[in-house]
């Protein structure tokens, strides 16, 4: 079963690292730790929560993006978010994927 969902992402102010808002309201470095929401109101609430961190100088430009949850694993819908979540597709030794290499999925 594939369920469409949303999460909030941003870049960290200090180092630009891609981060995701988790259930505890912290910014996590891995998409797996992100909080996923399925309804619009919840998504809006999550985004507003994320936006507070801009004033606190933790992150820049938080926004909502789409994922599909398959067997409990979130897969970003857009290639851009896939690349942000993993790293450059041409340098698998760089970015988040460097710690735990993943096979990059070609556009279907």
């Amino acid at each position: 079963m594939a369920t469409p969902a949303q999460a909030v992402t941003a870049n960290r102010l200090n180092d630009g690292e891609v981060v995701y808002l988790d259930a505890a309201g912290n910014w996590a470095e891995s998409l797996d730790e992100s909080k996923f929401v399925t309804d619009k109101a919840e998504a809006q609430q999550l985004l507003e929560q994320g936006e507070k961190s801009v004033d606190d100088r933790v992150v820049l430009d938080p926004y909502l993006f789409d994922v599909t949850i398959e067997n409990g694993v979130a897969i970003p819908v857009k290639k851009r978010e896939h690349i942000r979540a993993n790293g450059p597709t041409v340098r698998l030794d760089l970015g988040k994927q460097a710690a735990e290499p993943v096979e990059f999925k070609k556009a279907s």
């Binding site: 870049n11 180092d15 630009g16 690292e17 891609v18 820049l60 851009r80 690349i83 942000r84 790293g87 450059p88 760089l94 970015g95």
Partner: peptide, 16 residues
Amino acid sequence: KPLRLMNGLYLQLHAY
């Protein structure tokens, strides 16, 4: 932002 850009510093997908 314009100040950092005038010194060549961007924010890209993964980092600055």
